[in-house]
Amino acid sequence: MFAKQLTVFIENRAGRLSEVLSVLKENKVNILSMSLADTTEYGLLRLIVDNATLGKEKLIENGFSSLLSDVSIIKIAHTAGSLQTLLKVIDKGGVNIEYMYGLSIESEDAYVVLKASDSEKIDEILNANGVKTLSCEDLAHI
């Protein structure tokens, strides 16, 4: 299963990030997880939200770039070595991870969001190995 990630390209200008967040807030789009990949010139704000389609629409209306992409949200045990175990599984399957970020919601479990080089294959690999993937709604209800 894939989740829709919302990505916004933002220039490194004061206040830009908070403007993005205020557009989402005004439209009651709730942020579940986020990561900011930044370079010296710009940043890519990657968001997992409860309503990605609405978020995208409203951001574009407000003059931001905005796109949706398929990512996998995976629940892993909040214990030492569990992330490494997951990566080994993915490695063995022969796909590359483009990027990855994590969030911890509960005390026992952690969640990671990852984007693989081959989205079809990553799903197969995860399913074959019994790794559970979540949708944005699943995440929203935790």
Binding site: Q5, T7, F9, A37, T39, Y42, L44, R46, I60, S65, S66, L67, S69, E98, Y99, K115
Partner: peptide, 14 residues
């Protein structure tokens, strides 16, 4: 500026 549909989620692409 990029055409809206070419903004991406990957730094490598940019």
């Amino acid at each position: 500026e990029l055409d809206q549909k070419y903004y991406t989620d990957e730094i490598r692409v940019i």
